[in-house]
């Protein structure tokens, strides 16, 4: 029984973390058509906020509150200075965002002597459920993910910002002619995606620890989730993340831990081959 509980808990927690990380990337890809390879480093910066607030203010909570604001602002600045110069040129924007990510990551690395740091979670310790000892913070991540997901959906579907974003995505020229500033919308959208990445980073760092490659290790997986789920809708990447997260949690029970990732990626390639627009195929 214990081991089944742990299995379910691990799977949920792995999946929620992946969904959490994909949210921001999904917003930027789906709403702007930009694959942001610096996404991992936005996550890293968010994690850094939590780390610094733990070291300076004795609690990671403030970092979690500030991370979306700080990283969101950084996102806006980067969009205005770098990213917008490459709209419409997908390869160039891949390279530009990759470079931004590389610079951030190596700056962090050069600032760290010891290449890993732990961030104690605001709620420490563990609880026992039907014999299995589980950590509180992972449970909080499992609960926080659907909440955050709902908030994002509400923002995109029910607010005027969301309407503006969707209008800009659908038809920039028409949106522009109705008085919407598309360039401002792009900044805001990119900032919103970055803020989500920052928040995700701050939330996951108590579980995963802080190290320079924390973000970049998720980028490929996030990328695959987005492709698998389908670009162009908000739900696509989330579905994709769930579809890749569940097997990586479940498969290690029958296979060696080095295989699930391989299998998931192969399966994703097959799916994308036959459903070119991903699982949610192009439904905007």
């Amino acid at each position: 029984m214990e081991s089944e509980i742990r299995l379910v808990f691990d799977t949920l927690s792995l999946t929620s973390i992946l969904v959490l990380l994909v949210l921001g990337m999904g917003v930027i890809v789906s709403m702007m058509g930009v694959f942001n390879l610096a996404h991992g480093e936005f996550v890293l910066l968010g994690a850094g906020c939590a780390l610094l607030s733990d070291r300076w203010l004795d609690s990671a909570v403030w970092g979690m509150v500030l991370a979306p604001i700080v990283v969101g602002l950084i996102g806006v600045v980067l969009e205005r200075t770098v990213v917008r110069r490459f709209y419409g040129r997908q390869e160039a924007s891949l390279l530009a965002t990759f470079a931004i990510g590389l610079i951030i990551r190596e700056l962090v690395r050069s600032r760290m002597t010891i290449q890993v740091a732990t961030v104690p979670p605001p709620i420490e310790s563990t609880f026992t459920f039907l014999g299995a000892q589980l950590t509180w913070w992972r449970l909080i991540l499992i609960v926080a993910t659907p909440i955050l997901l709902t908030v994002c959906l509400v923002v995109l579907r029910k607010t005027s910002l969301g309407l503006t974003i969707r209008a800009t995505l659908d038809n920039p020229n028409l949106a522009e002619s109705t008085g919407i500033s598309t360039s401002r919308t792009y900044s805001l959208t990119f900032g919103f995606g970055a803020a989500l990445a920052g928040l995700a980073g701050a939330l996951i760092v108590p579980v995963l620890n802080f190290f320079p490659d924390l973000g970049v290790r998720f980028v490929i997986r996030s990328f695959i989730s987005v492709l698998l789920g389908g670009v162009g809708s908000f739900a696509g990447p989330v579905v994709g993340a769930t579809a890749t997260g569940l097997p990586t949690g479940l498969l290690p029970n029958w296979l060696s831990g080095v295989w699930p990732e391989v299998i998931v990626i192969c399966a994703a390639i097959v799916v994308v081959r036959f459903r070119r627009n991903g699982l949610l195929g192009g439904s905007r």
Binding site: D10, S13, L14, I17, R138, V207, L208, D213, L214, R217, F218, T248, G249, P252, N253, S256, G257, V258, E261
Partner: peptide
């Protein structure tokens, strides 16, 4: 059991 060198989470 082994975990991939680029893993992020060793919960399982």
């Amino acid at each position: 059991e082994y975990y991939p060198l680029d893993a992020t989470d060793v919960a399982t």
